[in-house]
Write a protein that binds this DNA or RNA. Sequence first.
DNA 1: TTAAAATTTTAGACAAAACTAAAATATATA
DNA 2: TATATATTTTAGTTTTGTCTAAAATTTTAA
Lengths: 220, 220
Amino acid sequence: MFTQAEENYLKAIYKITQHTADQTVSTKSIADELGTSSASVTDMIKKLTDKSLLSYEKYYGVSLTREGQKLAIMLLRKHRLWEVFLHDKLGFNWDEVHDVAEQLEHIQSYLLIERLDEFLGYPKFDPHGDPIPNENGNFTYRNQVSLSSVQETGKKLTMLGVRRHQADFLKYLDSIHLKPGVQLTILSKQAYDQSLRLQIADRDEILITQQVSQDILVKP
Amino acid sequence: MFTQAEENYLKAIYKITQHTADQTVSTKSIADELGTSSASVTDMIKKLTDKSLLSYEKYYGVSLTREGQKLAIMLLRKHRLWEVFLHDKLGFNWDEVHDVAEQLEHIQSYLLIERLDEFLGYPKFDPHGDPIPNENGNFTYRNQVSLSSVQETGKKLTMLGVRRHQADFLKYLDSIHLKPGVQLTILSKQAYDQSLRLQIADRDEILITQQVSQDILVKP
DNA sequence: TTAAAATTTTAGACAAAACTAAAATATATA
DNA sequence: TATATATTTTAGTTTTGTCTAAAATTTTAA
């Protein structure tokens, strides 16, 4: 099939298209995403283009072909299912799952991933609240808004996920007992810096900055 | 740590030492085991010797150092734990587990394997009846003999494992409902070709050749 | 015990995936 | 619009793991 390096390039390109309007991705953005040189990226682009996973025009940029996109989504599916396994079955913390899932996602076995999905009860979201594509590559859509955009105070909210996945951010949220599924209430909002005083579950109240609240997703 | 290729060489060398009296392994036997050329083996031996996983004398042969052996046993541990997971949790047949475990055993995470062991209930044997080394590399010993060596007829025996792991052999055993844990009784033995008439569980009796009975292990 | 056969090693080459340095092209700005 | 800056590509190297062919060594057997 494809090498791990090839798969990592497809994932990176897919990820970049997710948070940009354009479907066309620059060499540099891929290099930045993977922490590699532009020259290496150009080399790999050629290989993936030859394998018709990318369409590519020199000096202009690349985009995923239908086949390339399908493959990228299946990698995301595998990654997120493994994260659920590590978290739900093996008791990993949500900040520990990513690195191991990054390895597990490259295991080649269609049967494995379908059986794993079944074993986990066909989960729709991973431990960070990100949607898991199904066998056909379809994502479950759900309404979610940034905690920073919520105006009402006193209303009970449910945390759904995060927008940043860095381990230190997740560890911080953990330390204040915030993770997907937890109930929280905005007690008050500071007008000048948009910081929030929160009640998390039934615990003591806590203060979080806007920088943090922007990256927390809740049910609207 | 070590590359997959390096790990595969260590495993191969360990495997060869298991069914030979000598701890010293020839270049050719490694090449045969891995389906590669002797020249490639010589190259890799040098690398592994530099990393003090092997001790090596030109034209004479190699043996695993204590460190190399430890690593090989940990790979066996990972392989067999994954086989248990695939078989017990994901419902893989015992002839399907090997190839996927071959990939999974290279995943690098100490936590993963210790948690997996715990999740599986610290199994002592894999789906083929092979012992799983514990965290310290120790195997559980148990008395087991080849079915071909059993003389008494009419005695209830318990199958413990197999000596061959080829998928077609396992599929054949499956088709006659033989697998570890199953109760069987020798009804009679043909003197001239050592073939056995067996009762397996409560099913119809069946005839197996000595070639097959030699590779079936039972509680003595 | 010496010649033939088998094994092992060396030498040289190749593909994959990365790098650096330099050249080519595109974009931004004065 | 012309030039400076940024991006992209090319060219040439490196490392890993493989290969084939040939040389060196060991083993087998006449």
